[in-house]
Design a protein around this nucleic acid. Structure first.
Lengths: 211, 211
DNA sequence: GGATGTGAAAAACTTCACAGCG
DNA sequence: CGCTGTGAAGTTTTTCACATCC
């Protein structure tokens, strides 16, 4: 369970290694070296070994890593040995795309509720769930035992909603709204901000991209 | 134009500062300190000043920064003084959500073409553009002077498509497909990987999130 | 007075290089 | 012999702290 602070960059790479291992396993390959994993993940073999070393020693010297066994370890490290109950805030197009995203359920994340404030959308069936009124937020979080919230609302309402989520005891938020959310230290927020990504690309193009 | 290498983290923060300044400007506020900007951006005042210092000195000692003037500078730095021509690869739900995303055009990015390989989708009108056959990729990139490609395809086809894009001279790719793309040094790729974000949240929850 | 701009110090992260083990 | 695991070295990024200037 490790209490030492692990760098976010390390955790992100572990998630990438896991994805690669799962592909690899599908192809029946049994064992692979940090060098091979690194090449596919776009990093270095030393980085792979260092990342893993924070959590244990999973390889065999002279041989490499057993793909399936390492995948099991990574799932444990990442907390993917159980399922998570997810609430979507906002029933727009992006939310629709996310619901449909196959890997979602596959990876262990179940969308157990969707809320919106638009009366037009409330009551619509979305796969297994029905879009509820955002007024029911607190009730839903409690009744459905929600652990992760995904914000797909306009920027204006995001902070207010996140405040309400925190009151209900939510500790993990994936935020697609283009605002910086202010939350206490024990709440984890990941931002996905399309504009920032595009503007980084624009920066790169502008500065010749001649690296 | 700066040739020194600037950290990606710095560029990302600049994009965030710009967004905040634009809001701020809307509210008529004229001047603000690095401290205020930092608080809103979720960083420190020293970080704000350091980030800006790589590109010049835009503030007045004892006073702070003029919101509008700083925004102008940041747009210059980020290369947002002109518009960019964007191609979408994949005409699925996520692509649809992106097209609709208002800030897109607002920020200076124009979707000039959409391609897919599904005959069902080819020919559909998407706002201003019609979905074209992916076979036409090379022709479209040339004729429409595409500069940025957004990959919203299944993982399997992503690498092949990016190879073709590079052959056409594309240097900037925003990749939503959950694979690591292999590209030469003069091509900039930004990855947006939903699974990685969720798994980082899962990691945080699993490890008590008690920081 | 008050906030910037910036060298210098500290911290975080990555790479090196090699001992150690299968 | 080959590849891991890991201290130590190197590099990058952040924070500190203060001289500087409006």
């Amino acid at each position: 369970m490790l209490s030492r602070k692990i760098a976010e960059s390390t955790v992100r790479r572990l998630a990438i290694y896991l994805r690669l291992l799962e592909e690899f396993d599908g192809k029946g390959a049994a064992t692979l070296s940090s060098e091979v994993l690194a090449r596919r993940a776009g990093t270095t073999s030393a980085q792979v070994r260092k990342d893993l070393s924070f959590f244990g020693s999973f390889g065999k010297r002279g041989l490499g890593y057993d793909a399936r066994a390492l995948a099991v370890q990574l799932r444990k490290i990442l907390g993917l040995t159980r399922r998570y109950r997810v609430l979507l805030l906002g029933a727009g197009r992006l939310a629709g795309a996310l619901v449909q995203y196959a890997r979602f359920a596959e990876s262990g994340f179940d969308i157990v509720a969707v809320v919106d404030k638009d009366p037009q959308k409330i009551g619509n069936r979305w796969g297994e769930v029905v879009v509820e009124d955002v007024k029911q937020l607190e009730t839903l979080v409690r009744e459905k035992h929600v652990e992760i919230a995904i914000l797909v609302t306009p920027a204006e309402s995001a902070q207010e909603l996140v405040d309400r989520l925190i009151t209900c005891g939510i500790h993990a938020v994936l935020n697609f709204a283009p605002v910086q959310l202010h939350v206490p230290d024990d709440v984890e927020v990941k931002n996905v901000n399309l504009a920032v990504e595009l503007e980084t690309l624009s920066y790169a193009l502008h500065h010749h991209s001649a690296r």
